[in-house]
Amino acid sequence: MNVFPGADVDRKGRKASKEARQQQLIEATIDSLAKRGYSETTLADVADGAGLSRGIVNFHFESKEKLLVATLQYMADEYSAHWSAALEKAGDRAANQLWALVHADFDRRICTKRKLAAWCAFWGEAKSRPTYQVLCGANDKRYQEGFVTLCRRLGEEGDYGFEPESMALGLCSMLEGLWLRLMMGEGLTREKALAAAIDLLVAVFPKHFERAGPKML
């Protein structure tokens, strides 16, 4: 029997409030990374961006490094969950899965200038790379291996004759390059970037794709 009937509710409320405050700070960190970069982002910048005191930032994350690690972890988990869900929803056909993965990269929930700039801030800072490898290395490897598997399956189905590992590397590099161009501006939109990615799929896998989507074989 609970001696204090409202205790569980209070604990849940405090937990929810803590998670909401941490998420608020992470979002402010993403904004600061996009605006200032990795080295120039400070706890004061994050506090100001979130409309909170620096003491609150210190209470939740203790240091800039811990806040940046939490932000990278959040972004990595969000991205991994996003493409994993797209892959699962696509079904068993390799063509449908590859189509889903390419589209997932340009979904407005993931592909925004502020998030792309934050990713670039982590990629471009030498001292963040070991942390990136620890937090994201396994997911990146799983993502790349997934592309290799899909390229191998499509290559066998279509008798295309390319080398699966090289083709997967090329496709992933193309997606990363489009992300970089979107972040840089240059008049490129998500829609144009997605159309360019689709055109490459059609050119590389003509038996499997047309601009409207995967072909029914």
Rank of each mutant, 00 (worst) to 15 (best):
89 K>G: 03
124 G>E: 09
43 L>C: 03
39 S>R: 09
76 A>H: 08
135 L>P: 06
107 D>F: 11
98 L>V: 04
64 K>T: 07
83 W>F: 15
159 D>V: 04
74 Y>M: 13
32 S>D: 09
175 L>M: 12
202 V>A: 14
199 D>W: 06
190 R>F: 10
184 M>Q: 14
74 Y>L: 11
160 Y>V: 01
36 R>S: 06
139 N>T: 07
1 M>K: 05
33 L>S: 01
68 L>S: 11
54 R>S: 12
77 D>I: 14
194 L>N: 11
14 R>H: 02
125 E>A: 11
50 A>F: 10
24 Q>D: 01
101 L>G: 03
128 S>L: 07
169 L>E: 09
168 A>D: 00
174 M>W: 01
69 V>S: 14
50 A>K: 05
110 I>Q: 12
73 Q>E: 15
53 S>I: 00
85 A>P: 02
22 Q>E: 13
50 A>P: 02
205 F>C: 07
136 C>G: 14
139 N>V: 11
76 A>L: 06
69 V>H: 12
65 E>G: 05
49 G>V: 00
48 D>Q: 03
167 M>H: 01
43 L>N: 05
22 Q>C: 03
89 K>E: 13
62 E>V: 12
148 V>S: 02
165 E>T: 08
72 L>A: 14
196 A>V: 06
30 I>L: 04
211 R>M: 14
4 F>Y: 05
148 V>F: 11
118 A>P: 07
202 V>N: 11
